[in-house]
Nucleic acid binder design. Structure first.
Length: 402
DNA sequence: AGGTATTCACATGAAACTATTCTCTGAGTTAGG
DNA sequence: TAACTCAGAGAATAGTTTCATGTGAATACCTGT
């Protein structure tokens, strides 16, 4: 393209009216001024946590709900209000929010403790110290002042999955050892069956209070979307029916508000890129496809080499026939390794990698018994064929295959 | 025919190992007084 | 003698390997009719 052509493009880009006025309102981190359809939950959380303002220890609280049902939003909103009141009146209340899913932050016992210590002003090295030591540092920092601490552990199931429930046991018991401070725990999980696997002692003390967030229904999602859309888009930028359709999609998909907002945002971006001044229904369809495709491709792209090699083998073998077994994949995988000078992993490990892909929904791998001919996984692809070609290409580049 | 014992090809679990990153500690070294 | 350097011991963690045990049903093998 010629320079002046490009300049023209940019100038046009700047002057043209965008469908967006504030795109941030559709992003996940955005905190809306008003939270729709969660009044009862807000009240309940507030009721449970309010005692901390009177310097009493609030009950531990456990919040369940599927993704995108507003658990985090409600909790953060409520605790922010508490924080405000506490600040105004100079009350010794501290709210600590930790997302246990964040890699390298709080996904193990050590890291959680280190993160907590950091919240109380004690930097802890990322490794090198015994865990007890970090625990001790946190403990002494916590107990230094008379204060009430509300510790919010988001995605707590992830933490327990990796670090075990002993950690939670210690945390719930910590109050009996504290002299000055007191602590209560708010656990947030989107795995409803999570507590079943928990040690009964931990379970009972952690869920002194319980709260379940039901998924939004289509009408509620509509309200939410309309509210956000009115902030995010120029007036009249959304065609009639778009919001309704978007809400309906998300409602049938577990009532995930986050997905719905993302869908709307991508649809908006599409409309903008096409120089349209309104978002049409057609944009939604395309948005849904691109969203899914990008999700898959991005996932594939960031996989480690060994995983990529395994996936490459799966794609190749599955392209020839459907219903493939672990052994065949492993044979193909070994060949791929030979070609790429990759050190082949054991079948044990590859088996686990296949299971991981199954978890991530890239393939479906069902354990079946073939009777006399053994027991294995029956593997088939779970991505649409038109995406496979792109995945293959991506993998070939990633693995530097001819 | 009907019943039960085998057998396959992995699945699944647990423990141990490897490599990397990082701290802490104490011995040895150096430089200044 | 104080400050500095540096190697070695220990930790945490991710990713594997090694070893051991489990498993569901198609087949092989009996048994009695």
């Amino acid at each position: 393209m010629q320079d002046n052509g490009l300049v023209g493009f940019f100038e046009q880009f700047l002057t043209k009216t965008s469908v967006f006025t504030n795109k941030a309102a559709l992003q996940a981190q955005y905190a809306p001024g008003v939270i729709q359809h969660r009044d009862t939950q807000i009240t309940q959380v507030a009721n449970v946590l309010a005692p901390c303002l009177k310097n009493e220890r609030p009950s531990n609280l456990f919040i369940y709900g599927k993704t995108g049902t507003g658990k985090t939003l409600v909790t953060r909103y409520t605790t922010d209000q508490i924080k405000n009141v506490a600040e105004q009146r100079q009350l010794p209340v501290k709210i600590v929010y930790i997302n246990c899913k964040l890699k390298k932050v709080a996904d193990t016992e050590y890291r959680l403790m280190a993160q907590l210590a950091k919240e109380f002003g004690k930097e802890v090295p990322p490794t090198g110290l015994p865990t007890d030591e970090v625990y001790r540092i946190f403990f002494s920092a916590l107990d230094k002042h008379k204060q009430t601490v509300v510790l919010i552990l988001d995605e707590i199931d992830q933490l327990v999955g990796k670090a075990g429930d002993e950690l939670l046991y210690n945390l719930t018991r910590i109050n009996s050892e504290l002299q000055q401070a007191q602590i209560s725990i708010v656990g947030i999980s989107n795995d409803l069956a999570f507590t079943d696997a928990l040690d009964p002692r931990v379970k009972s003390s952690l869920s002194e209070e319980e709260l379940v967030f039901a998924p939004y229904d289509a009408l509620q999602l509509q309200d939410i979307l309309r509210d956000r859309a009115s902030i995010a888009f120029r007036p009249n930028a959304v065609e009639a029916g778009v919001i309704e359709k978007c809400a309906a999609r998300a409602a049938s998909d577990n009532g995930d508000a986050r997905r719905a907002l993302e869908l709307l945002r991508v649809a908006g971006e599409l409309a903008e890129r096409q120089n349209m001044d309104r978002i049409a229904l057609a944009h939604l369809d395309i948005a849904e496809e691109t969203l899914e495709k990008n999700r898959v491709l991005e996932f594939v792209r960031i996989q480690p080499k060994q995983h990529q090699a395994t996936l490459y083998s799966i794609l190749n073998v599955c392209a020839q026939k459907s219903g493939v077994f672990t052994g065949e994949i492993y044979d193909a995988y070994q060949k791929v390794c030979a070609q790429t000078k990759l050190r082949p992993l054991t079948q044990r490990r590859v088996s686990d990698i296949i299971a991981e892909f199954d978890m991530n929904g890239l393939i479906s791998a069902k354990v079946i018994s073939k009777g006399r001919y053994g027991r294995t996984r029956e593997i088939r692809l779970a991505v649409p064929p038109q995406n496979c070609a792109q995945m293959l290409q991506l993998l070939q580049e990633g693995l530097a295959l001819a």
